[in-house]
Design a protein around this nucleic acid. Sequence first.
DNA 1: TTAGTTGCAAATCGTTTGCATCAAG
DNA 2: CTTGATGCAAACGATTTGCAACTAA
Lengths: 140, 140
Amino acid sequence: MQEYDTYKGLLHSNGLKNTKRRNLILDILAQTEQPLTVDQIFLELKQKDISINISTVYRIVETMVSRDLVIKTNLNGESKTFFELNRKEHGHHIICMNCKQMFWLDDCPLDDYCDLLQEKTGFDITGHKLEIYGYCQKCK
Amino acid sequence: MQEYDTYKGLLHSNGLKNTKRRNLILDILAQTEQPLTVDQIFLELKQKDISINISTVYRIVETMVSRDLVIKTNLNGESKTFFELNRKEHGHHIICMNCKQMFWLDDCPLDDYCDLLQEKTGFDITGHKLEIYGYCQKCK
DNA sequence: TTAGTTGCAAATCGTTTGCATCAAG
DNA sequence: CTTGATGCAAACGATTTGCAACTAA
């Protein structure tokens, strides 16, 4: 087997075997800014004539999530779960309500607010999730 | 039938018939700050010795959502959908990751940021959703 | 009286699991 | 050779639907 070693090091350093499917799925996630559902990943693989079982896709993305390589997200109004590569930068998505495209925003206006809130509420605040909704240039 | 007319006006003005179950469900949602799942609502009704079918609960909350009386939310890491009364005030939830309680925050730090973003991205921004995660005073 | 509401059972959808086989290390 | 990875089919939990009976207006 050749050509599927792009993520060999990453996989091994996380205690995972280097397999063709894992490489392919990481590759798909790396090549888009969009969080993807399991069946979107499954379909992309099908289009590349890769035979894979959908339960394998579920298992692979969940394994990646447990290793912190992938982030799992639920979006408002969507029953399916989305997965995106963990690029280890903090940011949020701005989402077009018409075409459903999601664009990455690498700035975050919430750091000061969270500090403030921590004092005000007595919570130990560990994170937050922000989604911006609207219509993109094409759809508006 | 008496005692179930609290929301009669509200229901009628939204083109809905005034029924016992709708009144009860609106009442449950009105009496808590917590967004509830369908089966939490179902259980509360059971505890009040109200017989209702779970599919009726689903239909009632969805009807309320379509009339904008109730807000439907998906939360990160939860497979079930939550429903809360639409109190028509803007705000967000701060959520305890241990006990899962959600507290309402009636301030929002994002108005200026959204204006800014609208110019920067060319999006027509219509809304946003913010959740703050952490551990509450009791659980931390 | 009639259109909208509810209960019930079955269907559907997204996701998970058990087990046998297979492949990476 | 050993452990973890995958395929397959069956199970599962949340939600939706079709249809008949019912009830508010």
